[in-house]
Write a protein that binds this DNA or RNA. Structure first.
Lengths: 263, 263
DNA sequence: GATGCTAAATGAACGTCATTCATTTAGTGC
DNA sequence: GCACTAAATGAATGACGTTCATTTAGCATC
């Protein structure tokens, strides 16, 4: 009964990784590194579970954090978060499950890598160019869009110390700078961002909710006000009701916070 | 690394259950029913795991949904959500784990029972008495307070069809009625409630976040704006920073929605 | 009053999953 | 050449949710 997410086009867009974070240094030692790298990315449907490579340290490292992150993302978009098991992840990388633990300390650590990768897709380009309210609007919509496809990460990111996620920290820096440049009072900036983020996370869940979530069923007779209000909303025929609620709340927050700025 | 919740005084308040839902009819047949009932409520730290009762249907039913709900709540406040396993729940009720499945269909079903019980503690008493904004304020604060202690339920309640949770539906009815009585446009009511709820759920996570969540650590030098803003907030010495963000966002939402009312 | 039906318990077993540990092998620094 | 560490395999472990066969109790029906 846990949430199964369909393949998301957004997640598939995260294919363009530059050159990893650090570890890639060892690839210069010998030419045998190349096939190892292609194995990390290309051979996802290898038929032999783990029969070719014998025990012991291989000449070129098979795994690194960047490769694990990409494989996890691909697995999630193919099978959803229920399909993301350490065994499945290992199989998609053509290694034994225990090999993963040389690079990550736990499954939560994998989720953290995924989270920090996804944050890069959040659009902060509006800050520093154009008006403040448009920047907030663009940021919030894209933020919600990304995590609506990855709601199982929300409980993690919501309480995650930023020191553990450099890309997430970079996003906060960009947003904070944008608030400051727009004349937002410094002592209220973090609180405002936290409030906007809380709204974004909660709204991300709404996107994935079933269409009939507000159908009271047999109890409709006992909830006349609620049922009537649901009908009134349905009569408006919005393609995505969650968008209406998100827009309504976001505009209220933007208007309210806008009034706090000095200019 | 999953969330461990400390014992909450709120959860302990759910002790007063009336008399179960239905099944209690059979207790009139014989006097042996009494010890069985006291076993459900009183003997929580029974030393014998399940040795006294022999196989087969007992004279008086040992389990019912209300008893399972209360036991789950007690277990959660003692051991947190990590401690809520079907085996532990069964042990606290002095039954075999498989016996639970005669009354609930899955562990998620147990969580749904808990959720619907907790919603009763949300304060909707402001609606129908006093001004609209005060009612929303009281509702939102109490809603956040309850679920801050039960964040693992948020992914469930956020996408839960209301027909499956009668108490939750009752809450929506009360809030919707309050909005209508205050002149809120009917076609926007559900969207406004959904937006407020999204904010509440997201904010509930913030309450449980570690105090040093915004400590950038070694990366502080690369994030001057963010680090400075964090320091400015810290200088204000608020006892609970999450409350400041919640208040800031909630007041903006209330103000924004207030402007939509007809009066 | 025997017979069947269903509800509600036990106890054994299963399958999945994250994680650990001993072992093997490859490269690096002294 | 030698110790040390990194990175892989493979086997094993321990939870945990769930299912299934079995047993027993009460109720309804003929």
């Amino acid at each position: 009964m846990n949430d199964v997410h369909l393949a998301s086009t957004i997640a598939a867009a995260g294919r363009d990784r530059k050159c990893a974070d650090g570890i890639m240094l060892e690839t210069m030692t010998e030419g045998a590194a190349m096939p190892a790298v292609s194995a990390t990315q290309g051979r996802s449907a290898g038929k032999d579970p783990a029969a070719r490579r014998r025990a012991g340290r291989p000449s070129a490292a098979v795994l690194d954090k960047a490769g694990i992150t990409v494989a996890a993302l691909a697995l999630i978009s193919r099978k959803g978060y229920d399909g993301l098991t350490m065994a499945a992840l290992a199989r998609s990388l053509d290694v034994a499950p225990s090999a993963l633990y040389n690079h990550v300390s736990s499954k939560d650590d994998v989720l953290l890598l995924v989270e920090d990768h996804l944050v890069e897709m959040v659009d902060v380009s509006g800050f520093g160019a154009g008006p403040w309210d448009a920047a907030v609007r663009r940021w919030a919509w894209s933020y919600r869009e990304v995590f609506a496809q990855h709601t199982p990460l929300i409980p993690i990111i919501a309480v995650l110390p930023v020191a553990n996620a450099p890309k997430t920290l970079a996003m906060y820096e960009a947003v904070t700078a944008g608030f400051g440049a727009a004349g937002f009072p410094a002592e209220k900036t973090i609180s405002a961002i936290v409030a906007l983020e809380a709204f974004v996370f909660g709204a991300a869940y709404d996107v994935t909710a079933p269409a009939d979530i507000f159908d009271a069923g047999t109890l409709a007779a006992q909830t006349p006000n609620f049922t009537s209000a649901v009908d009134r909303l349905a009569a408006e025929q919005h393609p995505r009701p969650a968008d209406v609620a998100f827009s309504l709340g976001l505009e209220a927050l933007i208007t309210g916070f806008d009034a706090l700025r000095n200019r």
